[in-house]
Write a protein that binds this DNA or RNA. Sequence first.
DNA 1: CTGATATTCAGCTGTTTTGCTGAATATTCA
DNA 2: TGAATATTCAGCAAAACAGCTGAATATCAG
Lengths: 100, 100
Amino acid sequence: MAKRESKTKLDSYEAIFSALAHAARRRVLLAIYFNGGSMTAGEIAAMFAHAWQTTTRHLQVLEAAGLLSHERQGRMRIYRIEQKRLKLVNDWLGHFFKKP
Amino acid sequence: MAKRESKTKLDSYEAIFSALAHAARRRVLLAIYFNGGSMTAGEIAAMFAHAWQTTTRHLQVLEAAGLLSHERQGRMRIYRIEQKRLKLVNDWLGHFFKKP
DNA sequence: CTGATATTCAGCTGTTTTGCTGAATATTCA
DNA sequence: TGAATATTCAGCAAAACAGCTGAATATCAG
């Protein structure tokens, strides 16, 4: 494979679309959204059949893409949706629906 | 890795978001769009530094995701954007911006 | 037909992703 | 303090992906 300059932040779209490419991650976002915008890691992990460690990593991917942020509250972590970031993709797609 | 039921078409979102996850593929879509909606494979491949075979595969990914379609015209292939499909993702994202 | 042009197909390799399991860390409760 | 709870970290294996090269296919021009 060709050189890949350290996955620069420059390409936010890459991170965001990749994050959204996985069904589990889309499901996480929808679940959090319909839960009012935030959920604990445990609640999220409970929705899936696979190991919670796997979900943990999905959450990290989503967070790295900027689609989620988290905050500790006691011994649990609350994840929250970052709409701003979703807006970015939404705007990108918008290109294709503008009448030029 | 766990079983994976043959990448069913059921999940169109998977295909579409994965396709959009790669910068080259997003660039292809934008280029075609700003070129009026269609372009030949050659014109598209010419935009990239990498081997045209690589671009061919990107085009196939985009087509498999339903984001492009093609038509032969003589010895060249004309690729065309499928807006309908992009609309699908746009609508998915729309969830997050609706006031409930 | 022959050669040039346009483009895809097939197979190889290195990298990334995804899921798993086995710890580790942090916080609360008794 | 010690046990229970909530969650992440680390490392492994299988699969998927992106790039490459070499060959094949199809069409056009002469």
